[in-house]
Structure formats: C-alpha cells, structure tokens
Design a binder for these strands. Structure first.
Length: 462
DNA sequence: ATGTCC
C-alpha cells in the first residue's frame, strides 16, 4: 500500500511511517501473505483500542489512541472590518476562521458576504498553512483590463462591431470550451506536478479563453482618467477599454475540490468541526502539492484572460496600449507585522503600497482601477467588487431580465446576455463600497460599462 | 464557480 491508499483508509499523517513499518512486519511474518493488510489496518484505524495487544498492530494502535489533540485558539485572532451592513453570518464565519490553531489574523472587506468556509470578501493570514476554501473554488478568479487604441465614441455608434468581438472571442457557460482550442505558453508548464493537474491539462487547453458563468463577464466600456497616470502610462482623458472577470474554470475547481477533501479528511482530533475551513500544513506533501497546483492555476487563469484579450481585441481590430490585472482568489507568502504569513484573499484585491488592481461594480455601475495604500490591518487588501445583497435564487424570483435590459439601455448599457441573478439590484452601491475603503486604495481611473456579456444559464454561485 | 464518482 502507498501513502495515498493509507490516507484513504484514514491513517493520519503522523502514523503513515509506522503503518508502513507495520505492513512490512506483517508481510515478512510466517503467514503474512495470507493477511489482507488493507482490511486489517482499516479495522485498526476504526477501533485502535481493540488492537493494542495485537502481535503486529499494537504499536500502531497505541499511536492512534495517543493521537495528540490539536486545540482551537481559546481566544479568536483579531480581525478588522471595513464597511457597514455586513451579514452577521459572514462575521460568524470569520470568527470561526479566527479560531484556527494557526490563525495569525484576518480582515473583512466592505463587499463581504457568506461563502463556503471563509466569507467572500475575506482575508485570512495563517502561519505555514494553506486552506483551499480560504482561496475559493475558483482559484485565481481575477480581473484584467486592457486599454485599446479605439475611439470611445465608437462604443455608442458601433455596437455590432463590439458585440461580434466578444461573441467571437470567448465562450460563456458552465463547461464552456472553445470549439477550436487555443494555445498559450502555460500549456508548456509542468502539469505533472500533481495527479489532478495532469488529468485536467486537456480540459485546460479546451477552456483557454473562456469566461464560465456566475458573476464572470467580458465587457467594453469607457475608461476615464481625471489626471495623467504614470502608473498606467496614460494621459488624462477617455479611452475604450476591455474588462474581463474569469478564473481557472474546471481545472481550478477540481484542484480545490481534491485538496479540500484531503484537508477535511485529515482534520486533527479537536478540530473536526472546522469543515470547509480545513487546512494543509505547508510542511506536508499534500500542502506542497496544493501550493504547486494553486500556483499553476494562477498562471492558467492569467493565460485564460490573456487569450480572451488577444482574441477579442483581434476580432475588434484594436491594439492594446495599456493594462492592469490582478488575482482576487489566491494565497500568497507575504511578510506582515514582521512575520512570514500565508495570506489568503478570497474575493479580495491585493492592495500593497503602489500595487495596481481592478475593482468592478456591476453591469450598470463603474469599475475602478485602484492603487493600494499598503494598510497593515487589512493585510494590504481591498474589496473585489461591490458585494451581493441578495441571493441568486431570490434575485431570479424578483427580477425579470428583459425588463432590466430596457432600463439599462436607457442608461447607455447594452447587455448582450446575462442572467436575472446578476442585475445591478443584487449588488451594493459600489460608490459606497469605495468610500468605505478609501483608506485602503486610491482611485486612478473609472471604467463605465457600455457593452456587456455574461452567462445566461444563471445557475452558478460566486 | 464548476460539472455531474458525496
């Protein structure tokens, strides 16, 4: 039996080596070949007390019984909150996260709402451990904005040209792929670092350049700079820009699922009820594997946006003259308060001193290019958007998209497609959210959406 | 947010 088979029958990390030694002793013994070691070890794991006198399994059983209890923190780590009117359930999730044994601290962004394990809009700093659901299902869900050398006046006069560029350049929906697979250097990376990335490489190839579902979008809009920006390399003025919101699609979801299951199965005694907040030590093999796979998914998600922008700008016949991009579901090794920490941002924008990012509002409201101020208490983070105020199911009951579409057209926003669960009314006011984090980020430019495409299957969660 | 092997 190998390590992963032993994990599968419930042998904890610290008992793997003794378990292998036990198997070797059994196999070397007189009747060893007649014994089904897998069944035997499973019985020992299930009820170690019954095996303490066992000829071969006694030592292993004793080790399993004396398995140390890992204590939750007695007092939760502190976290600071930006913004008002955050769901008490999101605060409850954050307090639970702050009880993790290796929690250093956390922060809640003004767009926070309930998610699996950690709230979306949550920042969590752990010591030497990574929690897959504190990164999120969509590993490296991210934003990319490209400024194009196309006059912005075209946005209102030439809808068909922009619509065609989006429709031809990307694909929407759960499971969406490009019929003609695209290529990118990320496919030359080593996808054999883990079994799950190896098995998803072909799907990654087919999904390069796709936008998925839920809150993901591709849109054209008008970018306004009130002043020249040396950071962006642009003069004051208005520009046509392309903005996309997508992530690591199927491969990233598979990585999260695989390693979160593994982490949950290995929660130590005393910590079983952390559920989806389960973590992997970076000293463990599984932790190292997740870290490597997560980083590959970061590169894949960036490549995904690269391909979207390459294809859409080519179909449009425009040239990219400037741009900004950032992950907002990811974990980084960073130094804060003089310590190296694993900073998880799940629906949070990196906002270190001088770091650029994009924070979108909704299809009817502006997105902002921001520059971080490096505030320590937020672990140098900001929100990743406006934040939902309404569940998707409630939104689908409450809104009729064809009616909303007309209202949006009156405001100068043309929607190619979208679901009723993504109408502007399901989001907080982005201007209030930006106000609530004005100490965290400075606004460099404003992007007003004009031509929007989202998935219309409206089934996914963010 | 994903895809249909808990």
């Amino acid at each position: 039996m190998n390590t992963s088979q032993l994990h599968k029958i419930g042998v904890p990390d610290h008992a793997i080596v003794p378990a292998i030694q036990t198997i070797q002793q059994i196999k070397a013994s007189e009747h060893g070949r007649e014994i089904n070691v897998k069944t035997l070890l499973a019985e020992v794991v299930a009820n170690p007390a019954a095996f303490v006198e066992h000829e071969f399994c006694g030592a292993l059983a004793q080790l399993l019984i004396s398995e140390p209890v890992t204590s939750k923190r007695e007092v939760p780590a502190a976290y600071k909150t930006w913004g008002e009117e955050i769901d008490p359930a999101a605060h409850a999730q954050m307090r639970t996260a702050c009880l993790l044994p290796m929690a250093h601290g956390a922060a809640l962004m003004p767009d926070a709402h309930v998610g699996y394990g950690l709230p979306i809009g949550g920042v969590l700093a752990l010591e030497n451990a990574v929690a897959p659901y504190a990164v999120g299902v969509d590993i490296a869900c991210r934003m990319k904005l490209s400024v194009l050398d196309v006059p912005p006046s075209e946005l209102s006069t030439n809808f068909e040209r922009f619509r065609h560029a989006i429709e031809a350049g990307t694909r929407f929906g759960v499971g969406a792929v490009h019929e003609k697979p695209q290529d990118h250097a990320v496919l030359d990376a080593d996808w054999n670092i883990t079994r799950i990335t190896r098995e998803h490489k072909d799907k990654a190839r087919r999904q390069l350049g796709t936008s998925g579902s839920g809150n993901h979008f591709v849109e054209f809009g008008e970018l306004t700079l009130a002043a020249a920006s040396p950071e962006l390399g642009l003069e004051a003025g208005t520009y046509t820009a392309l903005l996309s919101h997508s992530g690591s699609r199927g491969p990233g979801a598979a990585v999260c699922d695989t390693y979160s299951r593994m982490a949950q199965a290995r929660l130590p005694r005393g910590c079983e009820d952390f559920g989806r907040l389960a973590w992997l030590s970076l000293d463990s093999e599984a932790g190292q594997e997740y870290w490597a796979a997560m980083n590959l998914m970061g590169d894949f998600a960036a490549a995904n946006h690269d391909v979207i922008h390459r294809l859409v700008s080519k179909k449009l016949g425009g040239r990219i003259i400037a741009g900004v991009e950032n992950h907002h579901n990811f974990a980084w090794k960073e130094v804060h308060f003089g310590r190296e920490l694993i900073v998880h941002r799940k629906g949070a924008t990196p906002a270190g001193q001088g770091v650029l990012g994009v924070i979108p509002g909704s299809m009817a409201d502006p997105a902002f290019i921001v520059k971080g101020k490096g505030v320590a208490d937020s672990y140098e983070s900001a929100s990743h958007g406006a934040g939902r105020v309404m569940s998707r199911t409630k939104a689908r009951d409450q809104f009729n998209f064809s009616k909303v579409r007309k209202e949006l057209e009156a405001k100068g926003v043309r929607v190619i497609s979208a679901g009723s669960d993504e109408v502007p009314g399901v989001y907080k006011n982005i201007l209030s959210v930006m106000q609530a984090q004005s100490d965290l980020v400075e606004i460099l430019a404003r992007f007003d959406p004009r031509i929007v495409k989202m998935s219309d299957d409206g089934k996914a969660e963010d």
